[in-house]
């Protein structure tokens, strides 16, 4: 099933990105033909372990990386291969919030200067209006206006992450990519920032791509969840659905529902060996069959809006079905 392009704010098709790897001359496939839609007014969660390519995907969508192939369509135009100059009109619509709030700000500029930059660059405000605009932005994210003259090192991580949200909001973007935006925050301030994300999305109606390794955070915040495994999107669907009835064996492992069965095979080496032919999850999957070795599974909709890339998922997609191990099925 291909989602209709008109329904998407950003439509990503077959996006691949390779980095030069070690040893020299080889290429590391960080993203391998990823297709997904980011819909208007939704928070799409992207989960996966480190090295799954979730940050790379976020940065590729924002065109901080240039994809090797594939398309990123926004407003009917493919921006995947545009140069920096042609990208400028799209920049306003695409903003990012980074993991490390302390590194997100130039240490030599005040918060006020950091917030005026986007407004001045995109000519959204005149100099005379700046103090008022900055105050409004700071208020919006729950910070006092006096922070305008503070330097980044004078603020805490939670406060800086709020400023980062304000900076992204300054341009009234259509999409914000948040990359592990709460994982470096202290527990007592994390709840506040998560609430802020939720409130802002509800108020402005912008879309958000929320990249996280924390499944609980994803479930709290996101409408839909996409699961990445070593550069492949293996499952995507409504958050409640993915959490209550995950379809891909890897998602099940992440969620801990396969934990008991997998208890003894906790060999991390095995976990990390990724198959280069067929299904990438092949070597770890307790349910793999010969077909998984021969052919790479593509995303398929097994339930409404719930897509999975697994040859066997059809067997347990129906209510009440239980996955069985490969030995049992082939016998």
């Amino acid at each position: 099933m291909k989602p209709t392009p008109s329904a998407a704010l950003v439509a990503i098709r077959d996006l691949s990105l390779s980095f030069p790897g070690k040893p020299a001359g080889t290429w590391f496939k960080a993203l391998d033909e990823v297709s997904l839609d980011i819909r208007p007014r939704e928070i799409l969660g992207l989960v996966g372990e480190s090295g799954s390519g979730k940050t790379t995907l976020g940065k590729a969508i924002l065109r901080l990386h240039r994809p090797s192939s594939g398309s990123i369509t926004i407003d009917g135009r493919d921006i995947a291969q545009l140069g920096e100059r042609q990208l400028k009109p799209f920049r306003r619509d695409l903003q990012m919030i980074f993991q490390d709030p302390a590194a997100s700000f130039n240490p030599r500029r005040t918060i006020g200067q950091a917030l005026s930059q986007p407004l001045l660059t995109q000519r959204l405000a005149r100099r005379a209006e700046l103090p008022e605009r900055i105050e409004t932005l700071l208020r919006r994210v729950g910070l006092p206006a006096r922070f305008s003259s503070s330097f980044p090192h004078e603020l805490s991580g939670g406060q800086l992450q709020r400023v980062a949200i304000a900076r992204a909001l300054a341009l009234a973007p259509a999409l914000i990519v948040a990359d592990e935006a709460v994982s470096k925050l202290d527990v007592s301030v994390r709840a506040g920032v998560l609430n802020l994300f939720k409130d802002i999305q509800a108020e402005t109606g912008l879309s958000m791509l929320f990249i996280t390794h924390d499944l609980e955070v994803a479930r709290f915040l996101c409408h839909r969840i996409g699961v990445l495994y070593h550069g492949r999107l293996v499952e995507i669907g409504p958050a409640a659905e993915v959490f209550s009835r995950p379809l891909h064996p890897y998602t099940k492992l992440l969620l801990g529902t396969l934990d008991a069965a997998d208890d003894d095979s906790g060999d991390i080496r095995r976990m990390q060996s990724v198959s280069n032919s067929g299904c990438r999850y092949l070597n770890t999957c307790p349910l793999a069959i010969d077909l998984c070795r021969e052919r790479r599974p593509e995303l398929e909709a097994l339930r409404t809006g719930h897509l999975v890339a697994c040859h066997r998922a059809g067997e347990w997609a129906a209510p009440g079905a239980v996955p069985r191990r490969a030995e049992q099925t082939s016998a």
């Binding site: 805490s156 406060q159 202290d186 007592s188 301030v189 709840a191 506040g192 609430n195 939720k198 709290f220």
Partner: peptide
């Protein structure tokens, strides 16, 4: 919404 603890250390 999550229960927040206002303020900072």
């Amino acid at each position: 919404r999550l229960a927040e603890i206002a303020g900072e250390l």
